[in-house]
Nucleic acid binder design. Structure first.
Length: 739
DNA sequence: TAGCCTCCAG
């Protein structure tokens, strides 16, 4: 690198006559010559030059001080604290010095300082901004999305002699886009009299980043028609637009356009190509390109890594991660969220812990992914630990993090803490509100959820399609049929939101659970949009609940037409047959599943003890304390029998001959949630509740057993199943047996 | 004595 080519040792004493005062004067000092190459010097090296300058009195020379200021401000690892210190010691900084300091802060992590400096310069009447000052100040406003400040700067610039300066106008295009004001950005672009390639790039990027890819591509074509030659930056934005659209054929065309038109291919542009192939779903093309790259940076590696996790190829992702020369926080995030999003939350959290031993500092993305992994596991202690970590490390609780925290606390069963986070927020966006509504919904607090839905609107926040999914879920879990119908029917006419397939699914669920099976079936048949498997799945589940075999079979057939490999459909119908004693049906389905190569997803329950998540499968004996657990189970079973518990054999969903009743009973008490509860009773000291997370829906038998355990052992059990929470206390459940 | 705007990963 260039830094290493510079001399490592800076002579303290000038070379002319040893006193440093004769000959050519201060400007010939070799350290000063080094400062001219500030683009290559690390701020630490600048300090090494700074010290002798102070000793030799070189610093009092105005030009030298300015050079030093520039070096501290603009070197690759700038040191803005030192830059400000040097600036403060310059008796009368000129406009160049002001501009340099404002420029450095505009692209720093704290652009507000740039605006404060700008205001100070104006306020004390030092200088009038020139054509350089404006782009820096506007950039700072863009970084802060400070629409009012930027608009004021726009107003000043228009009245200044630089009203048509293309640099200023280009930064304004970027600024309005950064504030989400695309129309204003386009207005500035249109009114720019002497557009250059940067003007085109700025407006194309604005549309591409806002996800308005077709408009970005239209502008690209228009640019060609107006005889503007696109450059590498143009191509980066266009490739990004192709990736967002998933338009691989256009992406390929752009790739060959770049080759034939001899567009400069720097690492950024090749990374953009990689990203395009990844987003269009072709890891083969991406890999081929990646292998050919002569220069790779952190972006290249992370793009590949994330590409593999997105394709579900976690092993390949892991290999890329291991091959990377350096792990920055983005690469850790790609790995952690990759595992989390592929349903491997335990490994995701293990990577999170490993990342903390590295020099990469966790950021917001890390925390959101780790909180989500904790939610999946139902690992409350881990989630709490992350929350404390955030507070200790002064993470600002923005909408993203707040949503994740509310979601984590809700899904880990601590609704009170979720509400506490929610109430502590001064401002809330639609996602924060929606997350809290979802939290209340999954805990069966339908009325509270609907209250919140109304409060949200009083607060001036418009619901979106996510909000409605959660509102309808709240109605479903609480059995609020007429309210569900009401809100569903209001979606389009009042809120302008077209119901999607998930909303129809929720409605079927609401009607079905309430026993209105025929109405639910008609509702599906009259759907104006394409029916999804989930809609028929909701009806099938309702048929199981209400033991309607005929309709259940119909729903199952429709479901399998749409998704032939849906193992859940077979399992649900099998449950329905078992519940209604149709054992021949159960056997037939088992055969069908075998022939189709499908397996029932095994039941799995987890319980967190001292921050460690313990998982149990049906009949699991792999736990180190397995013996103790089974002894406890025997004790539980006999105690429950004393209070009148009889195992509900219809819940044993494998086909077992009637006479083998004792085997059935055994199979029942081997259900994973019972094992988890037994382990919880052994290892979690009273009165702390036992928190269980289960991957499937809890069966009737486990539900009755858990209710009894809560009274016999006087312990609260908080169980999350696939659909909702069950709080077992004093012999009853918060779901009021409606689930 | 100088410099400004636009682009890629989680």
């Amino acid at each position: 690198m260039a830094t290493q080519m510079l001399p490592l040792h800076i002579p303290i004493v000038p070379t002319n006559n040893g006193s440093g005062r004769g000959g050519h004067g201060f400007r010939d000092h070799p350290g000063l010559a080094l400062l001219d190459g500030y683009r290559f010097i690390h701020a630490e090296r600048v300090k090494q030059i700074h010290a002798p300058m102070l000793r030799l009195g070189l610093f009092s020379d105005f030009h030298n001080a300015t050079k030093l200021l520039t070096a501290y401000s603009l070197s690759p690892y700038s040191n803005l604290v030192y830059a400000r210190r040097v600036f403060d010691q310059i008796p009368q900084p000129n406009l160049y010095s002001w501009n340099t300091l404002i420029r450095a802060h505009a692209s720093s992590s704290d652009p507000l300082i740039a605006l404060i400096l700008f205001a100070r310069m104006l306020h004390f009447g030092f200088y009038t901004p020139d054509k350089f000052t404006y782009p820096f100040a506007i950039k700072a406003a863009a970084g802060l999305s400070a629409l009012k400040v930027g608009s004021a700067l726009h107003g000043m610039a228009v009245k200044s002699p630089f009203h048509s300066d293309v640099f200023i106008l280009n930064s304004l295009i970027h600024f309005y886009a950064a504030c989400g004001e695309l129309d204003l950005a386009y207005q500035v672009f249109e009114k720019t009299p002497q557009k250059d390639v940067v003007s085109w790039n700025s407006i194309i990027t604005a549309f591409s980043q806002a996800g308005r890819c077709d408009e970005a591509l239209d502008l690209f074509r228009e640019m060609g028609c107006r005889d503007f030659r696109p450059n590498d930056v143009t191509m980066v934005s266009i490739l990004s637009a192709c990736g967002k659209k998933g338009d691989m054929s256009l992406g390929r065309w752009i790739h060959s356009y770049i080759e034939t038109n001899d567009i400069h291919k720097d690492v950024i542009l090749v990374n953009a190509m990689l990203d395009m192939y990844v987003k269009c779903g072709s890891m083969e093309d991406a890999k081929q390109l990646f292998d050919k790259m002569t220069e790779r940076d952190a972006f290249s590696w992370t793009t590949m890594l994330a590409g593999y996790t997105k394709a579900g190829e976690l092993d390949a992702a892991r290999l890329v991660f291991d091959d990377m020369p350096h792990h920055d926080i983005a690469s850790w995030n790609a790995l952690i969220s990759g595992y989390e999003q592929n349903g491997r939350p335990k490994e995701a959290l293990a990577f999170f812990h490993e990342s903390q031993l590295s020099d990469a500092r966790p950021d917001q993305v890390t925390l959101v992914a780790s909180l989500s992994a904790s939610s999946q596991l139902g690992a409350l202690e881990l989630g709490c630990w992350i929350h404390t970590y955030m507070e200790k490390n002064n993470f600002k609780l923005n909408f993203h993090l707040a949503t994740s925290l509310i979601d984590m606390y809700s899904k880990c069963g601590d609704l009170e803490k979720a509400l506490h986070v929610f109430r502590s927020l001064e401002k809330k966006d639609v996602f924060v509100w929606s997350a809290m509504i979802a939290g209340l919904a999954m805990h069966g607090k339908g009325d509270a959820a609907l209250d919140l839905f109304l409060q949200m609107q009083d607060d001036g926040i418009q619901p979106n399609h996510v909000t409605f999914t959660n509102v309808l879920r709240a109605c479903s879990h609480a059995g609020l049929v007429s309210k569900g119908r009401l809100f569903f029917n209001q979606m389009q006419p009042i809120y302008g939101i077209e119901p999607r397939v998930e909303h129809y699914g929720c409605m079927v669920d609401i009607l079905g659970r309430a026993g209105l099976l025929e109405e639910a079936k008609e509702f599906i048949e009259n759907m104006p949009i394409t029916t999804g498997a989930s809609t028929w799945g909701a009806l099938l589940a309702a048929c199981v609940l209400h033991k309607n075999v005929e309709l259940g079979e119909h729903a199952c057939e429709r479901l399998l037409e749409l998704e032939p490999g849906n193992d859940g459909a077979y399992v649900l119908l099998s449950n329905l047959y078992a519940k209604t004693g149709k054992w021949d049906g159960v056997a037939r389905l088992r055969k069908l599943m075998q022939d189709a190569g499908l397996k029932k997803e095994p039941g799995c329950s987890s319980v967190e003890v001292n921050g460690v998540v313990h998982e149990f499968l049906v009949g699991d004996t792999s736990h180190s304390q397995s013996e103790k657990i089974y002894l406890k189970l025997d004790e539980i079973t006999s105690k429950l029998k004393e209070v009148g518990y009889t195992p509900d054999c219809a819940q044993v969903l494998q086909y077992i001959e009637e006479e083998e009743k004792s085997i059935k009973e055994r199979a029942l008490y081997l259900h994973s949630e019972k094992l988890a509860i037994a382990y919880g009773l052994i290892s979690i000291a009273s009165p702390a509740p036992i928190r269980i997370a289960k991957n499937l829906r809890i069966c009737d038998d486990c539900h009755s057993a858990a209710k009894l355990i809560s009274s016999v052992y006087n312990r609260e059990i908080c169980l999350r199943d696939r659909y909702r929470f069950h709080h077992f206390k004093d012999g009853s459940c918060s779901c009021m047996d409606y689930w």
